[in-house]
Amino acid sequence: MESSQSSMEGLKAELRKESRRLKLNFDELKSGGFIKQTQKDLFTVRLRCPGGRVTADKMRTAAAIADKYGRGEVHITVRQSVEVPYVNYIHFDAVAEELRAVNWSVASCGARVRVPTACAGCSYNPNGLVDTQGICAEVDRRYFGTPTGHHKFKMSFSGCPIDCFRTREMDLGFQGMVEPKLLEDLCNGCQLCVKGCEDKALRMEGDLPVRDDSLCVGCGDCVKVCPVDAMVVARRGWLARVGGRHGKHPLFAYEVANFLTDDQVYALIETTVDWYRHHGEGRERIGAVIGRIGLNTYLDDVVRPLGVEIVAQADQRRKYWAGGNLYDSK
């Protein structure tokens, strides 16, 4: 820790000096889109790709930068970013200029709100329930780069409970969900919804399907399969998860609220980052803060005041979890 911090200080001093010499914007460098490599003077340029959505125009620019200043290759990161490795710092200005020409910029590292990730969502994925790309772009516009004062802060958006974007591993994760409702007059009793439910949350009682909310994860398959449109969407929104992380010591996030609107998602992000900034100590992630001072404190401080549908009981979370394989499970 000590040595990595002092080497960080050394790097910062080096960058500051170089940025003066090259008339570079030190803040741009410091934001962390230029990441020091093992090799002397070489950096990886991490590009800002919210939701992994990049125009062909920008991709051509990334390719051109790789050809001119790198080694003719890019790296696709696990969080949907395009990085150009092997760029010498003396070319930072030229790289920044090429990026500006297509209205692009570098991503961040360090103790900041990172570029959010997202799946394709409802725009063309048949499982998608919500517009993940739309909200991801807006969250990036509003919150990217916000300093947390402690450590990184990652967010992702999954369009359905299959959760390809691993909202459970995020500091804040949002996953699309629907609440199905049966219009009994239209139902013909065909049972396709019961067959289609992977969670066995539907069963027939007489001629009609009945839903068990303690098993239903809100995937909407029953709505999608119903041939007579008797099963419809009563509510659609975001399930919020908080306190997840990956890395050396992974943590599984807690579900904390159901059926959030987009505006409630923005409000939850703002108050959660504030809460983290205020309660965090040193370089701990928000999951560690919650572990230290308690989930209930977070719920009382952040979720309850928003007036949203809170998930406060452990048994409300059980249906989202297959069980087993958790180190501290009893």
Binding site: C190, L192, G196, E198, K224
Partner: peptide, 22 residues
């Protein structure tokens, strides 16, 4: 029964076809 019944009817509906009877 099983996987085919879970997947096929949903895909048919997505393509605009109607399932009249099961």
């Amino acid at each position: 029964d099983g996987e085919p019944m879970r997947n096929v009817p949903k895909s048919l509906k997505q393509e605009g076809h109607r399932i009249l009877r099961v």
